[in-house]
Design a protein around this nucleic acid. Sequence first.
DNA 1: GGGGTGGCTCAGAGGTGGCTCAGAGATTCG
DNA 2: CGAATCTCTGAGCCACCTCTGAGCCACCCC
Lengths: 246, 246
Amino acid sequence: MNTTRSGRPALTRPDGTPLRVLVVDDDPDLAEVLTGALRYEGWEVRAAGDGVSALSTAHDLLPDAVVLDVMLPDTDGFTVLRGLHEVKPDVCVLFLTARDAVEDRIAGITAGGDDYVTKPFSLEEVVARLRGLLRRAGMARQLEDGPRLVVGDLVMDEEAREVTRAGELVELSPTEFELLRFLMRNPRRVLSKAQILDRVWSYDFGGRAHVVELYISYLRKKVDAGREPMIHTVRGAGYVLRPATR
Amino acid sequence: MNTTRSGRPALTRPDGTPLRVLVVDDDPDLAEVLTGALRYEGWEVRAAGDGVSALSTAHDLLPDAVVLDVMLPDTDGFTVLRGLHEVKPDVCVLFLTARDAVEDRIAGITAGGDDYVTKPFSLEEVVARLRGLLRRAGMARQLEDGPRLVVGDLVMDEEAREVTRAGELVELSPTEFELLRFLMRNPRRVLSKAQILDRVWSYDFGGRAHVVELYISYLRKKVDAGREPMIHTVRGAGYVLRPATR
DNA sequence: GGGGTGGCTCAGAGGTGGCTCAGAGATTCG
DNA sequence: CGAATCTCTGAGCCACCTCTGAGCCACCCC
């Protein structure tokens, strides 16, 4: 059975081989971080720093998906996109764009079912978007049974952004949602505040681990309120999410 | 059968050969201690004192894992990390970092599922983290049957930081947990207080062996409480952990 | 049996880590 | 343009953890 480095069931190609992803960004540090995060999902990842090498690598790799910075040193995203579609017409593309980038141009690009995230983003978000894209494109065989995360009586529908505990709807803010998703994707495993910070908060966030404690406290009020607690503190180590019935 | 110098079953590469680890630290004493501890696990270990020689050694050794100090005389962690991934894309990295230098510099680096420990650390912790990394990366063939330590009716889940005795949950403080892990990794073997101090407490701890007695006493209260004792004193020699039923 | 050593446990000081509250800036939405 | 929401900072508080010191007990050797 095919599992990721994280021990989670992998999202694979229909033939069971790892999904192939190309990361295109001119910032080598960012490319490195993205590459690492996607490898962690069990995918085969290659990176490129500009449009030209992106196309040649794509030709070589025939990727299922591409994470593409729209601002590149040599070419713009549209040109690369056209080239990619010539190489592999059914490729999924996740655009990375600056917050203040012109919205309508992006909207035009993503018309084809592609998606985009604005910088600075969190790794959880990029990974989730990419999983969504691949799933919708029918490119991925899902070993789990759908876009729902279940831990005990806690259920998250990632697509609908809906969370229920024991059937009751739990309303979460964006950050709370992302944090809970990370916890639910790693149940019964202690996650350190640093790990949480790395995955859930944007890569340029300079703040201290104190925010994690704060948001854990928010989550507890909404998720554990009055019920048997699922979010546990492991002093000196981090937090664990565990099904209520043990 | 492949065993370590310690007599424990070894964590090996899938082909049965020893795991290969590269230690990178500019403090020769620390590198020496780490190297020794990892060799003790039955692994093949090489050391390097700076980024440049780290990369050339990596090229030569093709290590499965790297223990990497983020503060190096010549380069920073990101650069080395990138170089390592070029040499061997699936390498696991365990970062060593000063306690107060954390958060800002490390943020992002660990994104891939790599891990880190803060100085001063205990050898048990470094070894445990490294084993966890290798196991999750599927790099290691496990001769034991999983991330669980079992001695008699005493069970430790290292990932969840959960300990049960005869099915009952035992709650432990960080130091108690580390001490018990060391005992459980060396069952039926007498461990001297000096050995315990060396492995469980951080390398810069100046205290006396009295703390070991104290923590053994804590453990007994929690682990042996009211049951058949598993932790035995060997007067003048140290302590042994033995299964209760034999 | 007596003295000595090694080991155990209790009590408590000091430090640290984690939780929560309140509020300020930012952002989104009407 | 104003209101509501969201995110993060700072401060204070509490609980827990770690280690010190002291006294006591058990074992061992003389």
